[in-house]
Simulated scan of single mutants.
Amino acid sequence: MKDDLLFQSYIEDAKQPFTGWDFSFVSDTGRLQTELLPWSYGSLVLPHVRASSAMLDMGTGGGEFLSKLQPFPQTVHATEGYAPNVPIARKRLEPLGVTVSEVQDDEQLPFEDDQFDLILNRHEAYSPSEIRRILKDGGTFITQQVGGDDCHQINDALGVPVNEEFTHWKWEQAVQDFQDIDMEVSFSQEAFPVQRFYDIGALVYYLKAIPWQVPGFEIDRYLDELYSIHQRIQEHGYFDVQQHRFILIATL
């Protein structure tokens, strides 16, 4: 393993810093590619943004996606729960008139009752009852979620169990949660697109950016398993895993 210079170079390359929610270091170079979803989150949310007067973007990351939805409604707020992303989001979004709040408790959002007519949520946790509280009558909640079966092949290859915190999270449960609080789910869909890693460095970079996939991930701790995946990639050309995504639109 130590004599495998290609493996060592990929591991060293993966030590690049990750900021915001930007995977371009591996995605723009084609080292990580993902099969297309049967829907476009951006295309679904854009007409709602244009018709909104007060919107909230939950889990904005570094504000990369939200910043591309301009022109904005009159009032725009964003939340982010990952502390290192907060200053990045504020630097990008506040000059655009967006108020960014750091939020740690999904059950207690820092907003008034009936404050928003549109709430966006892309891959962020949420409380259905809290969404209902801050949403105006007739308001819309749109979320794309990462399901509990996401990329479990990574865990299998590293010999670690899937993170139990998320295994329960299913499309059917999310739909039922909103129906239980008398919100109408007008659209929902589920998909399992393939995500392909073309080198071990791209996988390590991904795992460093998504710490909840393998909690406590460290390169040295999983060096043998990573080398086995590297050998698999050298033999087959890639390492495939299956994402788990679902989307729903709920209206109050």
Rank of each mutant, 00 (worst) to 15 (best):
W39I: 09
L6I: 13
I181L: 15
L56D: 03
N163T: 14
Y10V: 01
P38T: 12
H168I: 03
S129K: 14
A209W: 01
R196H: 08
F23P: 08
I11R: 11
G81Y: 00
A125K: 10
D224T: 15
A83H: 12
S24G: 08
Q213G: 00
V103I: 11
M1Q: 05
V185H: 10
F7G: 03
Q144M: 12
Q179I: 08
I181H: 12
F65L: 11
M58L: 15
Q234N: 13
R132N: 15
T75S: 05
Y206L: 08
D105G: 02
D156V: 09
Q153A: 07
L44H: 04
S27V: 14
H168D: 13
K15P: 02
G97S: 03
D113I: 02
P215C: 06
P211L: 10
G61D: 02
H244G: 04
Q33E: 14
L252I: 09
V76C: 07
I219D: 03
Q104E: 08
L158G: 11
D199K: 07
G20C: 01
D220E: 15
G139Q: 01
E225N: 11
V49R: 08
Q195H: 06
D149V: 00
G97E: 01
S24T: 14
W21L: 05
A125Y: 10
P161N: 03
K170I: 01
E184N: 12
A250G: 07
G159N: 06
V204N: 04
P211W: 07
G201Q: 11
S127T: 07
S9N: 09
V185D: 10
